[in-house]
Nucleic acid binder design. Sequence first.
DNA 1: AGCGTTCGTCGAAGCGCTTCGACGGTGGGG
DNA 2: CCCCACCGTCGAAGCGCTTCGACGAACGCT
Lengths: 334, 334
Amino acid sequence: MPTISDVARAAGVSMSTVSYVLSGRRPISAETQARVKAAIAELGYHPHAGARALASSRTSVLALVVPLRVDVSVPVIMQFVTAVVTAARTYNHDVLLLTKDEGTAGLERVAGATMVDALIVMDVERDDVRIPALGRLKQPSVLVGLPDDAAGIACVDLDFAATAAECLRHLAGHGHRRIALVGPSPAVYERGTTYASRFLTGFTDAAAELGLETVAHPCGPGPAGVRECLAAIDAELPEVSALVVHNEEALPPLLEELRTRGRRVPADLSIVAVCPRDVAVGLPVRLTSADIPAHDVGTLAVETAMNLLDGRRTPGTRLLPPTIVERDSCSSRD
Amino acid sequence: MPTISDVARAAGVSMSTVSYVLSGRRPISAETQARVKAAIAELGYHPHAGARALASSRTSVLALVVPLRVDVSVPVIMQFVTAVVTAARTYNHDVLLLTKDEGTAGLERVAGATMVDALIVMDVERDDVRIPALGRLKQPSVLVGLPDDAAGIACVDLDFAATAAECLRHLAGHGHRRIALVGPSPAVYERGTTYASRFLTGFTDAAAELGLETVAHPCGPGPAGVRECLAAIDAELPEVSALVVHNEEALPPLLEELRTRGRRVPADLSIVAVCPRDVAVGLPVRLTSADIPAHDVGTLAVETAMNLLDGRRTPGTRLLPPTIVERDSCSSRD
DNA sequence: AGCGTTCGTCGAAGCGCTTCGACGGTGGGG
DNA sequence: CCCCACCGTCGAAGCGCTTCGACGAACGCT
């Protein structure tokens, strides 16, 4: 492995000149630059990451903390992760992957060892113990989600309250007046991931504003969970004409259950789902949906982290606006 | 951030002693160890990863290259990734995540910059261009998959040939004699990921050995792909009594299609699927399946990498034996 | 008693890079 | 015409750690 001084010798310049060519932190004449670059190419020189980190205290690595086995849907996580890795690369950064189950220890380890320049943390809970830990680190961090108290840490997420409102507005626009929310599993609410309650609040508020009759009910896993949820809805508010489904896992068994009951979508019952695009189009009925823009959120998280690193001031919280895509699961009510 | 010399001063020893306490590479008396450890805890000392890498040329980081958007199912990738991260942590290593779309450049970058000690590469193709590139690196690597020529690089994977044979043996044991293989999408074969052809070969060979009548057909995406595949099968070998499905994506539309045709599973048609456990149990019919042990393969990949790093000799290729789990999609034929 | 070992510790030399201050040379302004 | 400023480059001082050789002390052996 050639070192910077090999390059310097080959190009007939000093080490520092090579370094400045690479970093662009001082002006170097065009010809010198050319010679240095030629030498670099010829020798196949790669700067040693450790040495660079030691000398500059910058690593060009971002930590990304992902949930392991959660109720957050796997495709969404995957989309988010690839968006982060891809976006990080455009800033010449790499991504170190941590799992949530390491808790604060993982954060402290990689930050304490100066392995990363910044951290991006997914699946943040209402009162996440990691938030105070992140506050103590010398590296900046970005939360994906919206805790009760972000303690000054940057947050990015989809605006779930606005998304719920938009779903209702869409259905109301099609003439629906009695609408039920099929929510995430009870476990999600208990765990304190706030997207569930933000969606619910947005749903309730918008319903009041639009003068709609609504119920909301969580939905446990599997066909049994779906049946239970539908029964609860039916008991509280009979004859709803539309469903807002904020639960990806429930979608397949829900459609199956409706089919066996002979309720046609959208003829008898309209549905707006909250899910990523590919889920919406991959089911028996192509669902009208509010998109979960995992890709955009991931990209935004990286951009935010980079701004933080550059010392640029950043808004504390950035919530992405919802997008409803009309497909085949929503019909007009007379 | 305290440094090793702060710790040394606090403990009243030299830097090297602290280092040896940490690495255990030389004997240090119990009392000295205790004093050093106390100082470390008190100061909240974390060794600087860059400095350590520079001095020792070991990084305690593994690179993991994942496919971005492929026909490999997302849950399988996710399981694999989490297994790798978890296993790496048991060896005190972290994981740097790269995407396949960076190609050889990504490998050369992280290896050249000495960011990682070893590489694990998923979704290896028959004649993968990354194999020669990996061979040129000074770090060892582990392939997940089985290319035509591994060029001396370690490989780990599920034994797909044996898996196919096992599926047939299971069905034959239930009295089935006419069996069709619903294979991966044509794109998978074309891309040259060898698991598809290994499965097919195993299928064909075992069929001959067991004296079964079989057909095999790839299956394109969506309900259309499924219908086409079933038609082709029916044309070539009418009245099969069982299906081996080596295509996770096809499973939901396949079951749906069979349902609309009034063919009951398993009463009219038996199915053995090749998929991870959770997929098998998450469908309308709990499927008898050959498990895709993403978790085990991931763990094995990390173990192999660690053995390589320790200079321990390792078998070139390790194929995991299949496991069939009996559920509700397989009935006996008189 | 003398010698060779082993044990526990220290000192110092790097690992490869960044960055700061310095310095000769050139050009423009007074 | 001189001085100052700026441009392009160099030299050297670290960044924080590992590791090798060395060394005194304690020990067992003959």
